[in-house]
Design a protein around this nucleic acid. Structure first.
Lengths: 205, 205
DNA sequence: GATGTTGTTTACCAATCGGTAAAATTATGG
DNA sequence: CCATAATTTTACCGATTGGTAAACAACATC
């Protein structure tokens, strides 16, 4: 088996991922992918087959790295873990606005493709299940300790909706203060689920 | 001033609006706009100047018709109005899935353009303020009657985040049951803000 | 009814789109 | 060191992109 490829495939996918993440699928041309990776188009096509193929691999990479690494911190953590997730979201947004304003690759792709691309759709579903799974297991852990006030499934979905709302608003270019306000409220909401909270949901919600 | 145009401009931008709404900006070509309106490209360009111009007018049309007509029902309504809004969202989704799965033109555009297009950005901001304004005034009315449990601003933003989460999920092609679950929870959350509610947030949230 | 001004139509443009054929190159197995 | 099989390179493809120039047609005014 002669002649191994000279470039790191994972490295290329990471660059492609960033490009799609930043500009979207339709808005990025092959030329953009060439300059993002430093690779000529024919090399990209010999490695990945098609532009769509590049997107699929980019989303898979995104799920395996960006998403999983974040939500592993939430899995089985408890209310603290969920609240801290939103706190990190706010911190990230304040410290690195440029990166934050890219939003989420999967959310962006969900909007861009809808149901039109089954390969994207299946990955979107996997994503939603991953996110919800992390929230659910964190809150379930809290419930086991008797520290959760409210219905597990409902709270999980609410956390999910709040996160999606944040991604949309961030990607839409909302000013920093608007994002911080939203994050602050998301954190308050999550904290209000705590049985021993200093405040009750009846006071703030 | 001779020779009035033969087609109704509003009618044309309504069709253009639907096209962008359904497929997104980048994914729709001028040919799509031609077949959507039944007008030759040169006529479109003489009337609207550019593809971007068509988008701007489409969003303005969307804000003036689709958005305003819905949120006028929420303005100054109270908790009932907010809850009913989410109920209508769920009903719409069940009765007309095809239309529902188009999501929201402005949300879609926020994701597609981010901050890259100032004309889109200013309309996105106007949209967010309109939605929040409706929720806020509805809840403020409820608060005046002493019927609101919780902080007005926080509840407003929470309603907003939930709605954005719904739009993303719907557009992403989630199955009907997933959408109905999310809507049901949004409605429960809103109902829990009622002072005289049969259940307390402590029970469900 | 001629004239001026606009809208409509037709045909077309350069540029870019995603994608590829084929030659040149290079490491590996024999 | 040769033959082989894969990669890299270069050049190119037809199709489509958003956009427009110019001829033609129609209406309002004088």
């Amino acid at each position: 088996m002669p002649r191994p490829r000279e470039f790191d495939t994972k490295e290329a996918i990471a660059s492609i991922c960033d490009q799609f993440w930043s500009d979207g699928y339709e808005a990025t041309g092959i030329a953009d992918l060439e300059s993002a990776t430093g690779l000529a188009r024919a090399r990209l096509y010999s490695a990945f087959g098609s532009k769509q193929g590049m997107l699929y691999e980019a989303i898979d990479f995104y799920l395996d790295t960006r998403i999983d690494v974040i939500f592993r911190q939430v899995d089985n953590s408890g209310i603290d873990g969920v609240a801290s997730f939103f706190r990190r979201f706010a911190m990230m947004n304040a410290e690195n606005p440029e990166l934050s304003k890219m939003g989420c690759l999967v959310v962006n792709s969900m909007i861009e493709f809808g149901r039109s691309d089954p390969e994207v759709a299946v990955r979107s579903e996997r994503y939603r299940e991953r996110v919800r799974g992390a929230f659910r297991s964190a809150l379930a852990r809290e419930a086991e300790d008797g520290g959760l006030k409210g219905d597990l499934e409902s709270l999980t979905e609410l956390a999910f909706m709040m996160l999606m709302g944040l991604y949309v608003t961030v990607k839409g270019g909302a000013p920093l203060e608007e994002i911080e306000r939203l994050c602050g409220i998301a954190i308050e909401v999550v904290e209000s689920w705590r049985v021993g909270a200093g405040f009750d949901t009846g006071d703030r919600m």
